[in-house]
Amino acid sequence: MKSGIKENSMSFNLGPELMKRYEGKCIGLKNGKVVASGKNAGKVLRELLTKGKGDEITFACVPSRNAVMVK
């Protein structure tokens, strides 16, 4: 099934640098750069929506080192 396999532009990867710097926080990215961060998700997202109008913006959470995720 190799033909027709595409890398997708919606791939998501924060990368080790961002993960290390913003561990345990929400981050707002505008065109790939962090423009908002903090522990309050609503506040970070509102700031991102304000600063990022018209640009490509992404909201993400960076988990903590010892997080155990059972969803």
């Binding site: 998501f12 990867n13 010892n66 997080a67």
Partner: peptide, 22 residues
């Protein structure tokens, strides 16, 4: 077929791979 790599969550010693997209 769209292909995505698993992402490492969380960072550090307790690394787990998660299927994440945007």
């Amino acid at each position: 077929v769209f292909s995505f790599g698993y992402q490492l969550y969380p960072p550090g010693e307790t690394e787990k791979y998660r299927p994440m997209i945007k």
